[in-house]
């Protein structure tokens, strides 16, 4: 018999880990929505992010370990802006106008490139962030019956900040409106003074920063290793699809649903069917797509006759 408090605990932890899936899915969704790039490299971007943060954290720029990791995350984000510029200008700009498949193949290449770079730079042994136990104490945060590891507190806070800022910009500012306009009709948007290629660069930058910051949380939970790459892709993709592939708020919802089911049903069934936990995301995806083919929040195109 499972205790009520442990179910509650599983639910909370599921939702907490769902936030990080949501951020990764946001990275995927935004690129698809704006630049029509199906980004298979999202997991590798997360992987690179984790290693970049590790790299900057090991420099020990600030004595305080918590501040140190925050500074490292900031520096890694700044570096990822440069990477985003490189990716868009050098790899994808020549390909716009080509069939979707070409772009997908390029993201596969990008993924291998990033993964190769991390292997060359850091090898394949499992690493952890320096002073990890001081940043995220082993003893979990206890709120009533719920025991929440500190890394999830970070994950929730970070995801709320990222989604809050992003959704505000995307929904309320003229910049966000212009971004959505480009996603709907680039040619018309261009005639109204919106530079399409710049919008693509911005979406790459946001995608990179979101992925890199997810690397911090995934790296803290699983340790930093090549495995993060597959983990990232296998969670970001179904979360994005569940939410409707082009909806940022859907990405968060998709991530939450995924995390919840993985940590409740998945963990429970895993005792009887080892490995089912990694399949569950795709089963959820299947069910959602059968019921709502556009995903939960996906854009149903208006067709006036």
């Amino acid at each position: 018999m499972v205790e009520a408090s442990s179910i509650l605990n599983a639910v909370i932890i599921g939702l907490a880990s769902g936030t990080i899936y949501g951020v990764m899915a946001l990275s995927f969704v935004l690129l698809y929505r704006i630049a029509r790039v199906v980004n298979i490299a999202v997991g590798d971007m997360v992987l690179l992010g984790a290693y970049l943060i590790l790299f900057f954290a090991e420099l020990h720029l600030v004595p305080n370990p918590v501040l140190n990791i925050l500074v490292a995350a900031l520096l890694a984000s700044l570096l990822s802006v440069a990477l985003a510029l490189f990716t868009e200008r050098a790899l994808f700009k020549p390909l716009y106008g080509q069939p979707v498949l070409t772009l997908i193949m390029m993201t596969v290449a990008l993924g291998l490139l990033l993964r190769g770079a991390t292997i060359i730079g850091w090898g394949t042994t499992l690493r952890v962030f320096p002073n990890q136990n001081e940043i995220w104490p082993l003893h979990p945060l206890e709120i009533g019956p719920v025991k929440l590891p500190y890394v999830y507190v970070w994950s929730i806070t970070g995801a709320l900040l990222i989604f809050g800022a992003f959704l505000y910009i995307f929904r309320k500012t003229i910049f966000g409106i212009a971004m959505r306009a480009v996603s709907l009709d680039p040619e018309v948007a261009a005639a109204h003074g919106i530079t399409i290629s710049k919008m693509y660069i911005y979406s790459w930058i946001i995608a990179y920063v979101a992925a890199v910051l997810s690397g911090l949380i995934l790296g803290a939970i699983n340790g930093i290793n090549i495995i993060i790459s597959d983990l990232g892709l296998s969670r970001a993709l179904p979360a994005a699809l569940i939410g409707g592939i082009d909806s940022p708020s859907g990405a968060l919802l998709g991530g939450l649903i995924l995390g919840l089911i993985e940590h409740t049903l998945g963990t429970y069934l895993n005792i009887y069917l080892p490995g089912i936990r990694d399949v569950i995301p795709y089963l959820v995806l299947l069910v959602v797509l059968i019921i709502k083919p556009y995903g939960l929040f996906g854009t149903v195109r208006i067709e006036r006759v």
């Binding site: 003229i174 910049f175 409106i177 212009a178 959505r180 306009a181 709907l184 009709d185 040619e187 018309v188 948007a189 005639a191 109204h192 003074g193 919106i194 530079t195 854009t299 195109r301 208006i302």
Partner: peptide, 28 residues
């Protein structure tokens, strides 16, 4: 110089207000 496409190319998913505001980006 602003060109208005033939065939009423509205940004379907935006609200009317957002659609109008999109013309303001970079030329405020």
């Amino acid at each position: 110089i602003t060109y208005v496409h033939e065939g009423r190319h509205v940004f379907e998913e935006l609200t009317v207000e957002e659609d109008i505001l999109s013309g303001l980006y970079g030329r405020r």
